[in-house]
Every structure is written in C-alpha cells, then in structure tokens.
Design a protein around this nucleic acid. Sequence first.
DNA 1: TAAACACTGAACCATATGGTTCAGTATAAA
DNA 2: TTTATACTGAACCATATGGTTCAGTGTTTA
Lengths: 116, 116
Amino acid sequence: MVQYKIARLDASFAALSDATRRGVLEQLGRSDASISQLADKFHMTLTGMKKHVGVLEHAGFVTTEKVGRVRTCRLGLRRLEDEAAWIESYRQLWAARFEALDRGVEDLKRREKTSA
Amino acid sequence: MVQYKIARLDASFAALSDATRRGVLEQLGRSDASISQLADKFHMTLTGMKKHVGVLEHAGFVTTEKVGRVRTCRLGLRRLEDEAAWIESYRQLWAARFEALDRGVEDLKRREKTSA
DNA sequence: TAAACACTGAACCATATGGTTCAGTATAAA
DNA sequence: TTTATACTGAACCATATGGTTCAGTGTTTA
C-alpha cells in the first residue's frame, strides 16, 4: 500500500468524525460564512463554533480571513485527495481479499489447519 | 447532499483517525490475525490492541471469533461505502464551488458588496 | 460618544481516547 | 498435574474533545 502522510490522515479523519464539522464543510460548499452565521445555524455558541472551525482549518479544509470584526470562513484548497486515496486503496485490498475467500482458498487453508 | 447514517459515519471516521487502526485494517487485508499477533506487530500490549480491535469491530470493519484460547480477527463486511460516498459527494461540492470561483462569479459579488 | 456587535481567550466541565499494569479465567502443552 | 499461553476486565493515567461561561478587545452604528 502507498505511503501517506500519517499525521495528516489522522487529523483529517478526526476532523471528519464530527457531524457538526461535516455539516460546516457542506455549508461552506454552498457559500462562505462568518463564525456567527455558522454558530447560529448549528445551534452553538460562537466560542464552540470557533473551535470547530479551528479544527477544520488545522486540517486544511477551511481557510479564514478577518475583515473588520467579521471572520469569514471558506473552503480550503485541500480536496480530500489523500483520504479518498486511502479509502480507495483499502477498498481494493478488501475486494481482493474477499475474492480470494470466494475462491475458497482461505476456507480450504483453514480446513486443512483445523483437520491437521 | 444525500442523507447518511450520521452516527455510523462518526464512528467509522473516528475509527480511521488512528494510524494503528488503519494499519490493523491493512494487515487484516493481507491475512487474518490473532490479537496477540497484532499486538506484537504494532508493539503494544494485548490489552491495548484488544481495545483497538474493539473500536474497529464496533465500527463494523472487523469481525472476530474465538476458538479455544485464540481470538481471530478478520475484515468485516463493511467496505467503507458510506465513507467513500460522503467523501466523493464532498469532492463534487468542492469542485463545483471552485469552478464557480474560477468563473469570477464570487469575486464579482464580493467586489460589488465591498464597493457598495 | 455610547451602545451594540463579532470575535477571542482563558477557565472550567464531563466524557472519551490511547495507552498502561495487574489480577484473573480458560485452554493447551509438557 | 503443573506450567505456559491467550485473552479478559478492572483500574488507573495523561491528554484530547466538545461543549459551556465569562471577561475582555476591537469595530460599527446610532
């Protein structure tokens, strides 16, 4: 299997493991938004939302820019390439494994072992 | 965007956010393994590995079966379909968004707003 | 200038996570 | 029958997470 940037995968899968953060990403896909707007939409305090945005920003999924007193959040440049690649790679591994199982190879091995 | 099983996505992305657990999945893609073997390979106590396997099992990625004193771990039936689908859906959203940006639509809007 | 707004940071809280050790239980091997 | 193996569960630990409140700071608006 290909070698990925481990820490980055850790951070991005962790970032995606929260429904609120996935929601924020989907929202920012529709339009940019301020922290306040996001906090309002997801029924959360400003401070709470700021933390989520911080996580997304740290994972590279979001960038922010403060103009005046408003901080605007936008989708970042990362497009989940590494994550998609890991998952795709795993799916191939999985398919190959179960194909082998279907052929009965593994079952046979197991039977030989237990009957030995 | 399509509606996914939220709790499941939470659990599976969380499960994937740890390098050891991703490693275990890749290992199990090559061959089944006992808890001891996995613990050994990932330089960890039996108890620690058992917890990781528990997380993967809870997320549906792994199934286990105890025969005698050995618990054998195998890949489960889930093949990251929902996860792949979410990511793909996000990538499309992202692409559409940046395509719009490229066309300058957003930039124009922003300029109109600030100059108003 | 005064009041309202948008954010920021520190502190706190409960719970989860990733790991350990230690004390078992059950099975297999000598 | 003793001993070694493989796992299990409880307890513990440090740190992270997801949320809050409260007390600011800086910006608009009236």
